[in-house]
């Protein structure tokens, strides 16, 4: 479980996050949704400590992450897996080296053990026979999957994904979404996913948090979304003709 309490974050006087409090539960895919520029990435990066928050608290279980120094955070960092928007695979390393990297850095396993673990993770995301390829040789969907494999290589308790299906076609998006959900349930991770894709919301959202201009505007389950009368949420959800039609069909 991760709890965020009253956090604020600004860049050069511009307030990007305003008084956000929310609880993200274990074994569930928690979604942060909102328009582009609403502050989703900043929120995610603040939770993992890539941005220092100005005010508030971030708790991993009962450990107060925001009050920790670099050294103490390192322990928690090793329980975190993160999938970045573009994948953020290391360009100069092969698929296999990318997935083995966290193991190289943080375990004393033998090369065989590391290789076995890497192959297990790659297999889990359905990537086979691509160990020696470089990221530039992979398709967008494969890159995301390798990034997921790297993120789960150290068996994380917490999994973060920033727009895991941006730039992917709808079918591949759903595959990636389901993969994240399966991994979450299988390994009982606390998973937080940023997305602006309503398909993902309906597909995998256990809990949904809606951010509007840096403020938490609404939270609930993906089922509640259609019944909500929150104006900002409605204008976000029913932005497209397709979703408007769905709303009209809904009894």
């Amino acid at each position: 479980m991760i709890e965020v309490r009253n956090i604020y974050k600004s860049f050069d006087e511009v307030e990007v996050l305003k008084d956000i409090s929310v609880v993200f539960e274990q074994g569930k895919t928690n979604l942060i949704i909102g328009q582009s520029g609403s502050g989703k990435t900043v929120l995610l990066k603040s939770i993992v400590g890539l941005h220092e928050i100005d005010q508030g608290e971030i708790l991993y279980g009962d450990r107060n992450f925001s009050a920790m120094n670099f050294r103490a955070r390192k322990v928690i960092r090793q329980e975190i897996g993160m999938v970045f928007q573009g994948g953020a695979l290391f360009d100069s390393a092969t698929v296999e080296e990318n997935v083995m990297y966290p193991l190289d850095m943080f375990t004393d396993q033998s090369t065989e053990e590391k290789l076995e673990r890497a192959n297990f993770c790659l297999k889990r995301v359905n990537i086979e026979n691509a160990n020696d390829k470089y990221p530039s040789e992979l398709s967008g969907g494969m890159r995301k999957r390798v990034a997921i494999a790297r993120a789960i290589s150290l068996n994380p308790k917490y999994l973060f994904c920033d727009e895991p299906n941006s730039g992917l076609d709808p079918k591949t998006s759903i595959l990636i979404d389901n993969l994240i959900k399966e991994i979450t349930e299988e390994f009982q991770t606390t998973t937080i996913v940023n997305t602006h894709d309503m398909n993902s919301v309906m597909e995998i959202g256990d809990k949904v948090v809606f951010i509007y201009k840096g403020v938490k505007c609404w939270e609930g389950s993906s089922q509640d979304i259609f019944d909500s009368d929150n104006r900002e949420l409605n204008s976000f959800v029913f932005a497209s003709k397709l979703t408007k039609k769905i709303k009209n069909i809904q009894p």
């Binding site: 890539l50 960092r77 993160m82 970045f84 695979l89 360009d91 850095m105």
Partner: peptide
């Protein structure tokens, strides 16, 4: 610079490197 803008540096930091 490329590692920075493609978040590879963030990826390292997140691992605690």
């Amino acid at each position: 610079g490329t590692m920075r803008v493609t978040e590879q540096i963030d990826a390292l930091e997140i691992m605690g490197v």
